[in-house]
Design a binder for these strands. Sequence first.
DNA 1: CTCGATCGTTTCGCGAGCCGGAATGGCTCG
DNA 2: CGAGCCATTCCGGCTCGCGAAACGATCGAG
Lengths: 274, 274
Amino acid sequence: MTIRAIERAMTVLQELNLQPINTIAQLHARTKLPKPTLVRILRTLEEAGYVENDTRQGGYQVSALVTSLSSGFHKGPLVVEAGRAWAIAITRKHKWPVAIALPDYDGMIIRFSTVPDSLISPFHSTVNRRLSMLTRGMGLAYLAFLDGEDRDVMIGILQKSQDPENALSHHREELLRLLSQVRKNGFATRASTVEPRNSDTIAVPIIAKSGRVLASLGLTYFKSAFDSERDARERYVPILKSAAVAISEDLNRLSSSIAIEVNSAEPAVLEDDR
Amino acid sequence: MTIRAIERAMTVLQELNLQPINTIAQLHARTKLPKPTLVRILRTLEEAGYVENDTRQGGYQVSALVTSLSSGFHKGPLVVEAGRAWAIAITRKHKWPVAIALPDYDGMIIRFSTVPDSLISPFHSTVNRRLSMLTRGMGLAYLAFLDGEDRDVMIGILQKSQDPENALSHHREELLRLLSQVRKNGFATRASTVEPRNSDTIAVPIIAKSGRVLASLGLTYFKSAFDSERDARERYVPILKSAAVAISEDLNRLSSSIAIEVNSAEPAVLEDDR
DNA sequence: CTCGATCGTTTCGCGAGCCGGAATGGCTCG
DNA sequence: CGAGCCATTCCGGCTCGCGAAACGATCGAG
């Protein structure tokens, strides 16, 4: 026996994370919960400090305190930590959301996303979302830069998959041609056959100093904001490549020891110990 | 009217974030909730995926999914993003937890902490916790490096405070001497008059290229792990100072444009658009 | 100005479902 | 072997959350 009220509250909290501002009506439409119930849940969350009700804007939003609900969670791999600052910087400057994805079995999982930082982005927050390997830019950018042997293993796994998005794995020649093209270009984009159609993602691999591909870094934009996809690519591909190189360098610096040569202030003990 | 069950669930979730592993008995002692109630709440959270019940270890812990509860929250200042990777790197190498705190009115608020990454740390996760300005290393490291004028304003604010931890603000001479000492040393430590007594925090300022102090970076350790506090300081002060400089440099790189000169792969449009 | 539509919020009586003391069963001790 | 501690289950009682309906505020159209 589980407690229904709590399940509902968690559902609401999840929904609140999908959009920067949420009205009762929207939440009602998406969660199917009765409005009075929503009001009660939201009031509870508000008094507890996790939600703010901005009447001027007419809507509810999550507050800073929600971060404390996951503050005790052991963080992910260092590549995400090294990359998040760059992702945020790109979004601040160029507005579009940027994400970092790591491989997970036969797909990629988004481990960090700046969607909430991107004011122009009506996309949903996509952290923890799974992407297929062959139709998504972030998957292709990773797969294309895998070593030959690893890549063959991966393709073998994909062939056993039932997912229609992995269908290309059965056309080996075509797939290899595509991957070779991605390697030559240094980036990949989402398959045009896949939703959502009104946006595109440009993704580049993040490659360690050792040459091993670790993750992929992707930027998503509305097609309608550019005259052609070529314009967007000419603009953002260099930025992403440059950021991927910087992340790799940071990762290198971070994982080696922290330098101990400093502008020495003598480590004298404080007299007053405050 | 608020919903009690939800309030309780949030309390439990908060408690779960304070320790890596939690038994029913611990939670019962800390939350005062009846055990059957705890079991029901935990089962609900477990089925929803936010909590894991590791029977081998005999306890409950938060799972990766909790991060999605705050994935839609607009992130904090860039200095935290630039610093978190360094904080994590220090903790991975030297084990002790490291935190970043930002000023907030008359105190400091911890905005990031590696407590959950520090396996040897039985400290609680302290994100969003407020620290007083005059008795905490992180407060003093910030205050001491404020510009003369800003510092005077801050001291004025502190004098109006009733908090006994701000008492020192009424002894101007003594306070200025302390701050001058901190500036000379380049770091500050927690007042020995303040809890917890069995640990100490070493804090350094994070100073922007402009010379303005932005935040402070602190490392906390058990006194019993060292022969003397001097030993600990000789060891960690240089590391912290070095990291603070690196963070400042990263911040500078991040906030200027992302370089667009790259190892040019021609931005040719992909033939196959997948 | 007056409808009417659509918000968010409050009301209120019913009964589902949460509550928690007590019981259970497993475990580790001495 | 039994005492003590643990997490978990049981189950009768009765709160307390539930949601249809009403309310009042806001807005735009006519």
